[in-house]
Design a protein around this nucleic acid. Structure first.
Lengths: 222, 222
DNA sequence: CCTACCGATCGGTAGG
DNA sequence: CCTACCGATCGGTAGG
């Protein structure tokens, strides 16, 4: 769990294509971690589609070809599996955000450009193919314990820590007018809510979304 | 169900204060509708607090002092009760929005002023004391049938129909830069997400929120 | 990781 | 609206 899975964006779809295929044990590849990851991935998809409470551990077991009791060999409870989905989602999102910034770091130090990278990447984290982890975290947080919520809050702080100076700079230069803290909450709301309505089969692309968000939040250059 | 309950904003809290008190039958007041409304209200509170699946019909029955099977005398299923919460929430929100616009209709025909009224009222609908109905609708829609979703979509269209011309006017005048449809979705997202983080016991008021939202979305006058 | 199983809970109903 | 109840499902476990 410490090393993030390969970019969920491109890896998940492939795996979902052959859910039957038993793990190919090329070379000395151990099964242990794989089965655990498979469980987390299947759980994420089902938790997102049907909700945590409406998903039975039997559903999850069946999705990876296990018997009903077997998930409990890997996770001590259904709640632990939910938390693993959320934690994996956050670690993966943080890593992906880091890569996105690094890639653009060529010259893009201007706050508007940085905000675009952050927003565009956030849409990817939320809406990219196979990215069910963060939506699950956003919409099922009621089901975890206060302690787990605290641990996730730390990861969320880490994720947001990159945004704070960017938003502060934009506010200082007058390109964002609203109070910094409320602006951050409202912006994340606008972005996060897209998980409820975005349909990949429809017209708008993630770039369109990023454009619209930037146009909505940023004051035009005077 | 056709006539909306008294403004949830001021009526709900009072009722919550005396959950034990058996309905006072002053004058010829019939119990029938009251019990039904009590059930809807209790269900809304519990559905919001614990989620639909995690709330048992026994929880709801107990909250209004009934035995476990009795809610099914009023509603044919748990799902019907959920839908009643959502429909009641939408009808109430539409009525409340109508009143808010009427009250301000003195001279306020300018789009920015109208948007402020709409946003301020929307925060009231979402975050006002005892207003659990709309958050339940927003966050539990997975649990209703497609047909019910369709019926609610009609009510949501009615609610949003007032926003559309206002947003169009703001876009035409350059005070909103983003694509009209995406702007609407992003704005509603920013507002709706507040149901996840807003804490009435904290500093910001609903007026603060409305101010911040306006400042964030509207281009400054040149 | 499977087999076999348990106790608890749940939505819903018959019959008054 | 209550009493008494049912069938189904669920999370989880022992023992291999």
């Amino acid at each position: 769990m410490d090393k993030p899975v390969a970019r969920a964006t491109d890896a998940d779809t492939a795996a979902a294509k052959r859910p039957r295929g038993r793990p190919r044990k090329t070379l000395g590849e151990r099964d242990d971690g794989n089965r655990r990851v498979e469980l987390i991935r299947a759980a994420a998809r089902l938790f997102r589609k049907k909700g945590f409470d409406a998903t039975s551990t039997r559903d999850i077991a069946a999705a990876v070809g296990m018997q009903s009791g077997s998930p409990f060999y890997h996770f001590k409870s259904k709640g632990a599996l939910l938390y693993a989905v959320m934690e994996e989602g956050m670690r993966s999102a943080i890593a992906q955000q880091g890569r996105a910034l690094q890639k653009e770091e060529q010259e893009t130090t201007d706050p508007p450009g940085l905000l675009r990278v952050l927003i565009r990447n956030h849409f990817d984290v939320l809406l990219g193919p196979g990215n069910d982890f963060i939506p699950v975290m956003l919409y099922e947080s009621r089901a975890i314990t206060p302690r787990q919520r605290g641990l996730l809050a730390q990861l969320q702080s880490e994720y947001e820590s990159v945004w704070t100076p960017v938003l502060a700079a934009l506010q200082a230069s007058g390109r964002i007018r609203a109070d910094a803290k409320l602006a951050r909450l409202l912006i994340f709301g606008a972005l996060n809510w897209s998980a409820q309505w975005f349909d990949r089969r429809q017209s708008a692309t993630l770039d369109d979304l990023a454009d619209a968000a930037l146009a909505l939040f940023l004051q035009e250059i005077p």
